[in-house]
Nucleic acid binder design. Structure first.
Length: 716
RNA sequence: GGUCCGAUAGCUCAACUGGAUAGAGCAUCAGCCUUCUAAGCUGACGGUUCGGGGUUCGAGUCCCUGUCGGAUCACCA
């Protein structure tokens, strides 16, 4: 979705624009040529100046070298512009130093604008979806990235002048919740959140895990029977498939044995001691080749240089390529068998039966469904509250899947979709370079895609003025949304092209990927609590909370713990997969939330002292400021970028832009703070200016952090 | 196998969409508290931007190619 054209001008852009015009004038005056585009960029820190003109492209017009061109333009600007104080030319780059008066004026504008950081309303409405959990288990670390991201993007759009509608779709229907229901019915003994004291979403999650465990137990003998060659009691297609799998496995295993013998054992032994023993294990079939390789790479290798180990592993990998690829193929076949076998277990039968009954509105099933979903919602709302996220409207899959079905059937009538012999409905996307996609099962029930079609249409009906919709969903679903948007277009909805999938990368742990079945998920509630606890420990250690009440202290720990967590998850470009290192996330120094919160508290401390001294800065005072210290100038340059960053963050759908900016601002202010003690200043004008300047920085930091959903303390 | 995404300092991440000697933080080392909050500041160390070609005044960024990692291609959601 393109949003260009909804943005106005900000302070630094005006400055930039004026400068560009003056450069254009200079070029016209000097070389008797006109240009329509000039390349101006921020000056590198190592050189003096704030704006830099790239001169290379101008050499054709000036018929002079880049340095000479730069000098001529620089001279001209100093003499005629009234803005440029001095300049320097390095290679082909013209670095401009603006008059302090220009920066003082910039500050006056910011000072006079209490809404600095909030762009005027642009009359546009936009919908942002995030969170959208399944109702069978509690929220985890992945949801945290999703929620913080969605919430922050919503705030950023609001700051850009949009009227934002935050929504989510709750996946309250389907086989997943039936699994929890089935397990609860079988093993729950009537447990409730009240009777156990367990948070509702966690209780329901417990039974989801229980279901999976039981399923594993029940499916094992079935798989063993199948693999022994006995395939009975399956439908025709299933039987064919299973027999085919068995056949494939036999062939693959034969090949594997041949390949295993062919592995160059001599080459492996040559790689070092210990390696060979590990492979003896693999040959005895106690481990797969892949596991052996994995174990070796994880082994403690003492003081062998890392590069050597890496090379060794690469060699090994190459030697074992064939056997590992065969193993993987066998695993694929086994997975296919498992899939079919699972449907034959008693417990899966119960869950599927519940799903059918639910669709038929069976009273008892619906009642249980309502009860357990209710537990989950209570749990979720507690989690959302602590996370500090909210929603204007909730959509429930159980309300939208039928609507989706209607729309699909309409599509069939119009000839947009087609029906197969078994009654299933499909859309043909081969013209778009994709496959055929199922929209309704042969028994007429809805799939994921069906309900998303319904939800989208319902939303544009509920909010007819929205220009578009943003879906905050992990990048594993890129294909899904690509297909969804094409289908909506086919159905004739012109707004389909203004739907945008805000696709973000997965969160990895140092131990690898999170897998709910292997119990390696990081629970959202637990994580938030740990962060707050850690914040408390570290804060008490620093001993700065003596004059805070117990309540205030608690609030502060909450602010720091969650601020740290949010900042950690938001500072990385959303598109990229990121590593969550728990140890690093609770750090308070450097590029962290608490560092920025701390800077804010410092500023406020100065503010309080100024108030106690009755120091008030007026616009008249500012008019008396004529010179700036380098630290002040530097900070003002950063401060003036705020609204441009707010725009950029919206354009890129990236809170990371704001996070980086807030950090830059805090850093540049700390430099000022350290070098120029504010209250040591005898000159009243300078003193007042610095107090006002500090307040402006604090406000900008606070607003930037708010865009990330992070609160900032008065003291810490 | 097809499609898409990624690879930058020991680690985690930037790099204004083609511009300068590729920047921060962490870690390591060395300095700075009689001062508005040291959760801070200053410095040092650290790079063949995965390999190989190409495009041009100029490439981490664009094109081709190879290697590695991830995602996806369900009558799951």
């Amino acid at each position: 979705m393109r949003l260009r054209g909804f943005y106005g001008n900000s302070i630094d852009m005006n400055l930039d624009q004026t400068l560009r015009t003056q450069i254009q004038n200079a070029v016209t005056a000097l070389f008797n040529q006109t240009i329509d585009a000039v390349q101006v960029q921020p000056t590198n820190h190592e050189f003096e100046g704030s704006h830099t003109l790239v001169c290379f492209p101008l050499t054709k017009l000036s018929r002079k070298g880049p340095e000479e061109t730069g000098r001529l333009i620089g001279d001209y600007l100093v003499q005629h512009s009234g803005m440029v104080n001095r300049f320097n030319v390095v290679k082909g780059f013209l670095n401009l130093v603006l008059n302090d008066a220009v920066w003082v004026e910039v500050f006056q504008t910011i000072f006079a604008n209490p809404n600095y950081g909030q762009l005027p309303p642009n009359g546009q409405e936009i919908m942002i979806e995030y969170s959208s959990p399944n109702t069978n288990k509690p929220l985890h670390l992945g949801h945290l990235r999703n929620n913080f991201l969605g919430y922050s993007v919503a705030e950023i759009y609001a700051a850009n002048g949009f009227n934002v509608h935050k929504v989510q779709i709750i996946n309250d229907r389907g086989i997943h919740i039936c699994k929890s229901m089935a397990a609860w019915k079988l093993f729950g003994n009537g447990e409730t959140p009240e009777s156990t004291g367990v948070k509702g979403d966690h209780l329901v999650g417990k039974y989801y895990v229980k279901f999976d465990k039981e399923l594993k137990v029940q499916v094992k003998p079935i798989i063993e029977t199948i693999e022994s060659g006995v395939v009975e009691g399956f439908s025709k297609t299933e039987t064919d498939q299973l027999l085919a799998c068995n056949k494939q496995i036999a062939v693959l295993q034969n090949k594997l044995q041949t390949e295993a013998v062919a592995v160059d054992r001599a080459a492996i032994s040559a790689l070092g001691a210990g390696v060979e023993e590990s492979f003896a294990l693999a040959l005895a079939e106690k481990a797969t080749w892949k596991d052996v390789l994995k174990n070796l790479s994880a082994e403690d290798t003492g003081d062998v240089p890392a590069k050597d180990i890496e090379q060794k592993l690469k060699k090994l990998q190459a030697l074992l390529k064939n056997v590992i690829s065969l193993e993987e193929k066998i695993a694929e076949q086994k997975a296919a068998i498992k899939e079919i076998a699972q449907n034959k277990t008693a417990i899966m039968g119960i869950a599927q039966d519940m799903l059918r009954k639910w669709e038929q509105k069976d009273e008892e099933t619906v009642a249980l469904w309502k009860t357990m979903n209710g537990w989950v919602y209570n749990g979720f709302s507690a989690t959302y509250k602590r996370m500090g996220v909210d929603f204007e409207k909730l959509y429930y899959e159980s309300d939208t899947y039928l609507l989706g079905k209607q729309e699909v059937l309409k599509g069939v009538e119009k000839g947009l979709f087609f029906q197969k012999e078994d009654g299933s409905v499909w859309v043909d996307l081969t013209a778009e370079g994709l496959d055929q996609k199922l929209l309704l099962r042969s028994d007429g029930t809805s799939v994921y895609m069906t309900q998303d079609i319904g939800t989208a249409i319902l939303r544009f009906t509920d909010f007819p003025k929205i220009m578009g919709q943003v879906y905050t969903v992990g990048n594993e679903q890129e294909h899904h949304f690509k297909v969804l948007f094409i289908i909506l277009s086919k159905l004739g909805f012109e707004w389909a092209k203004r739907c945008f999938h805000l696709s973000y990368g997965m969160v990895d742990l140092p131990t690898g990927k999170m897998k709910s079945r292997e119990g390696t998920v990081v629970d959202a509630d637990d994580l938030m609590q740990e962060m707050v606890d850690e914040a408390e420990v570290l804060t008490r250690k620093l001993g700065r909370i003596e004059d805070l009440s117990e309540d205030e202290a608690k609030q502060l720990f909450e602010m720091i713990g969650l601020g740290g967590l949010k900042f950690f998850l938001l500072k990385v470009d959303p598109k990229k997969r990121m590593l969550f290192d728990p140890n690093e996330s609770i750090q308070l120094q450097g590029f962290t939330g608490p560092f920025i919160q701390y800077t804010h508290a410092r500023c406020r401390s100065i503010g309080r002292k100024a108030e106690s001294m009755n120091l008030v800065c007026t616009e008249a005072d500012l008019r008396l400021v004529h010179t700036l210290e380098p630290e002040e100038r530097e900070a003002l340059v950063v401060l003036s970028l705020f609204e441009t960053k707010i725009r950029e963050a919206a354009r890129e759908y990236s809170p990371a832009v704001i996070a980086n900016y807030a950090f830059d601002l805090a850093k540049v202010y700390n430099k000022f703070y350290q070098n120029i003690p504010v209250f040591n200043e005898a000159d009243q004008v300078k003193l007042k200016f610095r107090v006002a300047f500090t307040k402006a920085i604090a406000d900008a930091i606070g607003k930037a952090m708010n865009l990330l959903g992070i609160a900032v303390p008065e003291k810490m």
